[in-house]
Design a binder for these strands. Structure first.
Lengths: 226, 226
DNA sequence: TTATAATGATAGTAATACTATCGTTAAAAA
DNA sequence: TTTTTAACGATAGTATTACTATCATTATAA
């Protein structure tokens, strides 16, 4: 048995549903690989078209511009992560263990499942680390938000916030702590690999140390709450 | 008496020192206002030249490209902040009070001192919040780092890390906690104003609540350390 | 069998991100 | 004071980016 995970995407993010055709799936697959390779700034629809073997106009039939494509990919990632969390914390009754699992999922390198799918989660994870915040750090964030583009991120944050409150109902900042964990799982990873002076993690065993830091941060805050 | 604060800038960031001429100072002043107004993506040297009343080529004599200008501005900000911290924590003996002061300085809206200077710190603070991380979230981060472009950020982080250790010598993650405070002071501010569902801060008294959150996060971590 | 929809191929445009040249002006050195 | 140098303004030019438009072809569905 093999069941395909389907993530519901905001229709305003695309012109034609990329999951509905072979070309669309190629766009998703190759855009992840190309953004990973050259970075979001140097990524263009022309280069993407060349990789795929189609034309620029072909890409524009699916996505209005590269910003919407980035928002699409980040939304997909948040949706996917929320599913991973709900799957892996299912029937864990102890909220603290649940929260530890969440931190582990956020901070661990994603390992590949099947390469058959059209999105490589492991590369996408790296993209989220390096480019993810560019999806909302823009002048149009207000309009994008009105169109619900960040709902998957908010939903994930709400899920984590709820688990935090399960651990400690009296904690006063569940949502801010949730967004802090999520952002720091990515930023500290980026710093560790690119600006190590900003972290306390060595080159070896790095991931474990990042997880330990996040656990320490979160559980100290919760234990401290009255 | 009026003493002008001079921040030493990495010479590799510019082609001609912008602080050495009137045009250079205008470039700094107007770039802050233009980036604040249109955002870094829509900001171009052509528009900047028009604002100043010079030509595109005139700007290119000072800065190679807009990325280096952004790195220049962020470096300036980190240097300025480090000075603010050293100034305002001077002769405070209690490390905890010092750390609280640091958090306050990081998370407070910067109010204007004199408008005579060529950099508006209050607008620059807003730019750091919205655009700051784009200075290092690039493919060239490694090369930029080799050229010491991020030294001011690292220095600031080291200063904060040292104060953290003064508070609690046994705490294991002073640098990661320092970079977490700095990043979160900015990100939570951005979320509060643009994606409020990611925070627990209301529209009123927002700044105080953000400071309270950061204090709670930091001191819980330190008190928790053995 | 005929519509309809998706794609490929090609063209074109305005803006961006530069580089190069040249004449003028203003300040510093001789 | 004259001469040299440095900075600036003005203009031009190029490759790339970020699109939009058109039309022929192919595959699918009515």
């Amino acid at each position: 048995m093999k069941l395909q995970l389907q993530i519901t995407m905001n229709e305003a993010l695309y012109l034609r549903d990329p999951e509905s055709s072979e070309l669309g799936k190629k766009i998703l697959k190759q855009s992840v690989e190309l953004i990973y390779k050259v970075g979001f700034e140097a990524f263009t629809f022309k280069k993407l078209a060349e990789e795929i073997g189609t034309t620029e106009a072909g890409i524009y039939r699916y996505f209005e511009n590269k910003h919407k494509l980035l928002v699409y990919l980040t939304s997909w990632y948040w949706g996917w992560l929320e599913f991973q969390i709900s799957f892996h914390t299912n029937n864990i009754s102890d909220a603290s263990i649940k929260l530890k699992k969440v931190i582990h999922l956020l901070a661990s390198t994603v390992e590949e499942h099947e390469d058959t799918k059209y999105i490589n989660e492991s590369l996408l994870h790296q993209i989220i680390i390096s480019e993810g915040s560019k999806a909302y750090l823009t002048k149009q964030v207000g309009e994008d938000n009105k169109q619900q583009f960040f709902k998957p991120y908010k939903d994930l944050c709400a899920v984590v916030g709820t688990i935090i409150l399960e651990c400690k109902p009296s904690y006063k900042y569940p949502k801010s702590l949730a967004s802090t964990i999520i952002e720091m799982a990515h930023f500290q990873n980026f710093f560790m690999n690119n600006l190590p002076a900003l972290t306390d993690f060595g080159v070896t065993k790095q991931e474990d140390e990042l997880i330990a830091f996040l656990n320490d941060l979160v559980f100290a805050s919760l234990e401290n709450a009255k």
